[in-house]
Each structure stands twice: as C-alpha cells, then as structure tokens.
Design a protein around this nucleic acid. Structure first.
Lengths: 111, 111
DNA sequence: TTTATTATTGGCTATATTACCAAATAACAA
DNA sequence: TTGTTATTTGGTAATATAGCCAATAATAAA
C-alpha cells in the first residue's frame, strides 16, 4: 500500500469509526430531522449524560455534527447532508443480508 | 429509545463497524474495481495473511463481501454495489473537514 | 503418498473503546 | 454572591479489537 493510500484509508476509517456505534448512528438519524440538545438525546438514548456527551464530541470531532450553545443548553446538528444517503446505503446492506438469510432458510426447508 | 430503534441502530452499527478500519475500507475500495484473492490483498496491504484473512471474514460476515474458491486460492468480491456511493459520501465529509480547517487557518492569519 | 501453496483458525498480548461515577465548568436566576 | 441546571472532563474497570505467530485445513502438484 502506498503512503497516500494508507493516509486516505486511515482518514476514511476515522469517519466510519465515528459512525460505528448504535448510539451514535441513532443520534445521526435524529439530527437528520432537526437539531437536538444533549439532554433531549440523553433522554431518548437512556444512558448517562456524560456518555451521550462523549458520543456527541466524537461526532463533532469527525466533522459529522456541530454544536451551538444557547444559554446552558448545547444544541447539536448535522454538518453533512449526504449522511442521509449514507444511512440509506447501510440499510441496503441490511436488507440484502435479510433476503439472503430468507433464501437460505427456504433452501434448507426444501431439502 | 424503543426496542425497534435499538435493534435498528445496532444492525446499522454492525455494518459500519465492519467498514471502520483502514485495511478493510482499503479492501472495499479495491474490490470495487474487481475481485482479488487473499494473497493479492495481503501483498497490497503488507500485513500478515492471517490478519488480512480475518479482515475479509469480517467483511463477509457483515454481508459486504463474498468469497469464491478456485483451487487453493479464495477470491473475494463486493456484494453491495452501493458501497461505492457510500465511500463517496465519506469522502465528502473528509473534504468538508479539510475546507473547514483551511478556513480556520485563514482566519487565524488575518488576525 | 508426500510436498507445496493458499487460506483459515486458535491463542496470546497490546491497545482501544465504552460506560459509569465523580468532579469541574458554564450560564443563568434568585 | 449563592444556587441551579446543562454539559463536559477525568478517572477507572470491563469489554472489544487488532495483529502476530503457530497450528490446522484444503487443494493441487510431484
């Protein structure tokens, strides 16, 4: 692997890692709709505030989300509109996996 | 978070986790072009065969790649064509981050 | 069969990630 | 100022991930 390829792959992996957690992909899904504050997202997710705050900082750090302070509350919003298509693609993989499983169950039954 | 949302988020995160590694996103990029065997990818990546094999099995397990044996060599190929658009989207985030950095450097210099 | 090649699996250590609690910070109101 | 609410940060323990080596398939060739 060339140096440039290594760097490129690492940069891509960094973005993907930021998305690769149930709570974080849930947050991205919610933020796609509208901005939410930490306390609202904490309520939805149901884990500790500090945990959610850390998830948000990971998304922010990856350039996926941005924050805006209003008084004491911090609102997060999506930075990248294309992330919606992104999720759509992940969904395609999931559907494909389900279809494959159904097919293999069908084959098993017909034996 | 509702049970159904939790399950959905976990399924999505599973796919993203499979992609979230420099070597694995590199492999996906290569397989987008044409199928490659384990030894070819090992050569390109430059880590141990067993390591590459494990990366491939992670991609296979997530439904991202499939394998086909020809003699003693195993060829892997991409299962999901939409993964190309996917990478394009990751790239958009990266470019956006770079632009943001450039902008902040510009602002710092003009002070 | 024996040998060589390709790939996978098991075992191990090093490192990274996650979640919680507690403590610190920030903004505002009393 | 003091208290209150919202958020972030530091610390820690549990768990997950990654990479290498060694051992084990699986296939083909000698």
């Amino acid at each position: 692997m060339k140096e440039s390829e290594r760097i490129k792959s690492e940069a891509r992996a960094k973005i993907l890692k930021a998305l690769a957690h149930p709570s974080r992909i849930f947050i991205v899904d919610k933020l796609a709709e509208k901005p939410y504050c930490v306390c609202e997202l904490t309520e939805m997710i149901g884990s500790d505030t500090s945990t959610v705050s850390k998830h948000l900082s990971i998304l922010k750090n990856a350039g996926i989300a941005t924050d805006k302070k209003k008084g004491t509350t911090v609102y997060y919003s999506l930075e990248t509109p294309c992330l919606l298509r992104f999720i759509g693609c992940v969904e395609e993989v999931i559907e494909q996996n389900i279809n494959k499983q159904l097919k293999s169950i069908g084959q098993a039954e017909s034996r």
